[in-house]
Amino acid sequence: MTAPDPQDAIFPHRHLLGIEGLRAGEITRILDLADGYVEQNRRPVKKSTLLDGRTLVNLFFENSTRTRTSFELAGKRLGADVINMSSDGSSVKKGETLIDTAMTLNAMHLDALVVRHADSGAVKLLADKVNCSVINAGDGHHEHPTQALLDALAIRRRVGRLDGLIVAICGDILHSRVARSNIHLLNAMGARVRCVAPPTLLPSQIERLGVEVHHHMKEGLKDADVVMMLRLQTERMSGQYIPSTREYFYFYGLDYEKLEVAKPDAVIMHPGPMNRGVEIDSEVADDLKRSMILDQVELGVAVRMAVLDLLTRERRRAGDTQ
C-alpha cells in the first residue's frame, strides 16, 4: 500500500488519548503498521517477541469484554505480560481516587496502560500522572481512538481508500465516543462525514466538528459509501431521548429499504455489541457481502498491536542502549 514502516522511526506521541490532533500521516502510519499485524494474526503461530518482558495493564473502570479481550490479545501476541484490572476487583470501589490508582500503578513500572473510564477526560487525568504510555480505550463520551483506527483500517482494506468517501454515522451520536473519534479521523483523512440521528441524540453544534447533519435516514444515507451504525443504549433511552425502541427502529434502524439509497456496494459497520431489531436489522447485520462487523473485530487486534508497537518504540530503544 505504502512504503514499509521504518523500524527505527519514533512515533511523536507517548500516549494515544484521542484522534483529535493526530495528523493524516500519523494515522496512515498506524494503519500501515496494522496491515502487517493482520498478516501476523492470520498465521498459525501468532506470537512475536517484540514486547518480550514488557508489562501491559488493562485498567477497565467500565465493563467491556470485547475491547479488553482485544487489547489483551494484542499485548500477548506481541509477547508482553498482560494483567487485567477491572473496577470490581480493584481498590477503586474502596474509594481510592483515580490519581491514587495512577500513582500506585506507576510505582509498578508498567510499559503501557490501557484505560477505559466512564468519565470524559479521566484517561488524560491519569496519563498526566504516570511514566508509561497510556492508551485510551474509551473515556465517557469523549474518544475511543483505537475503535476509529480499526474502523478506518476496515474501510481501507475493503474499499481501498478513505479520501473522498461519504461516511454516514447513524444513531446515538450524543453519547458516542466512537462517533467523535471517527469524525476526527475521517475528517483528517479527507472523507465526507455525515451524522444521521434525531435531534435529541445529537450533541450541541456537532456541525462545527466538520460534519453534515441529517435527521432522516434516507437523506443521510444517500450515495453513502460507508454506513456506520452506533449502539443505542436502550436502558437509558426510552421516553428520554426517543419515545420507544419500536419507533426508533422504524425511523432509524438500518434495513434494506433504507439502505437502498446508499451506493450499491456500500459497506455496513457497527462497533458492537449490536441491538438487533433496534438500530440494525438482523438480515443486514448478517449480510456477508456488505457487513464488515466481524472484520472490525479481527482488525481491532491488529490495530491495537500497531499502537502498542509505536507507543513503546522510544522506550524500547532507550532500553536497548542501556
Binding site: 463520551h141 450533541p203 453544534q205
Partner: peptide, 15 residues
C-alpha cells in the same frame, strides 16, 4: 457550557 467545546470534550452541556 453547551456548545462546540463541550461536544468535542464529550462533556454534558448546560444550555
Amino acid at each position: 457550557n453547551s456548545g462546540e467545546i463541550a461536544t468535542r470534550l464529550g462533556l454534558v452541556g448546560i444550555p
